[in-house]
């Protein structure tokens, strides 16, 4: 029968284990309460990312200090524990290489910081917003609102595209207008719209130019730089405005078109000899 005074290992009894477990639970609860308090007190005074980091550091420090104070209930020599812990750690590390790999990757991610909380990213096949960066995994909320947990090893070894790492980014439109329309006027109308929009950056300046004489119309290319934080809303808003502005000016955005010449019609309009020659070709 196992009693509270049953020795488990060395001088450690079941009672010691229970006391230690209760102490750890209390420490974790205290750390959480302090984290909630910190979040409430500082949420409107700090950037969310910085606040999350601060809260995590405070939590870890509280838990470590708590565990340190709880250990004497075991009456354990801490130095000896470290040696034993190191050996056990080595064994565990070999046994759980994936976890260790994820842990190492997590540490390198925190140092290199290719992504931050709130960044819009693509990691491998997953696109979305970074919700959390844990030590073993990174949580991404996809554009569809789906929770995706990516192990840090995968994050570290995958190609990462961070759409908002730079303060500004460029996007482009291709606008086609009819051959009969005034190209200069169309460029002017689009330029005016870009000038009036607050988030179309003054520098680097936007550019609007004829990029191609297409099959169905004259192709205009529009390059726009916008703050990375708002580029998507600017992109969606401006395209509609360009369409409406061109409509107001009577500038047509042409459908694909092809000029077809009927042989019968040609025979009727050309002299007899000419028609015969075409027919013989």
């Amino acid at each position: 029968m196992v009693g509270l005074d049953t020795v488990v290992y060395g001088d450690v009894t079941v009672l010691d284990l229970i006391v230690f477990a209760i102490s750890v639970v209390i420490i974790v609860i205290v750390a959480r309460i302090i984290a909630i308090y910190l979040k409430r007190a500082l949420s409107d005074r700090m950037e969310r990312e910085e606040l999350d980091k601060l809260v995590k550091v405070v939590q870890v420090i509280i838990v470590l200090i708590g565990v340190w104070f709880a250990l004497p209930s075991f009456d354990i020599d801490v130095g000896q524990l470290l040696v034993v812990g190191g050996t056990v750690g080595l064994i565990v590390a070999f046994a759980s290489q994936k976890i260790v790999s994820n842990l190492g990757s997590g540490i390198f991610l925190l140092i290199e910081r290719p992504v931050k909380i709130g960044d819009t990213i693509r990691i491998g096949e997953t696109s979305g917003t970074v919700n959390q960066i844990h030590i073993l995994s990174t949580i991404v909320k996809t554009y569809e609102g789906i929770y995706v947990r990516i192990p840090n090893e995968e994050v570290f070894t995958s190609e990462i595209t961070n759409y908002v790492a730079n303060p500004a980014r460029r996007f482009e439109y291709l606008v086609s207008i009819g051959y009969g329309d005034d190209t200069g006027r169309a460029v002017q109308v689009i330029r005016k719209l870009l000038e009036d929009h607050p988030f179309v950056l003054r520098n680097p300046a936007p550019s609007v130019f004829v990029s191609e004489l297409g099959d169905s119309g004259v192709e205009l290319t529009v390059y726009i730089w916008a703050p990375s934080r708002v580029w998507w809303s600017v992109r969606t808003e401006l395209l509609q405005k360009i369409k409406e502005a061109l409509d107001r000016e009577g500038i047509e955005i042409p459908f694909p078109q092809r000029v077809v010449t009927m042989a019968e019609a040609r025979r009727r309009t050309e002299p007899a000899g000419e028609s015969d020659r075409h027919a013989g070709q």
């Binding site: 303060p167 500004a168 009036d196 607050p198 003054r202 520098n203 680097p204």
Partner: peptide, 18 residues
């Protein structure tokens, strides 16, 4: 009428109210 710009290069500059 607000207008924004970029001071510095796109990779390390800062967005500014112009």
């Amino acid at each position: 009428r607000p207008k924004y710009s970029l001071y510095g290069p796109p990779e390390e500059g800062v967005i500014t109210r112009y």
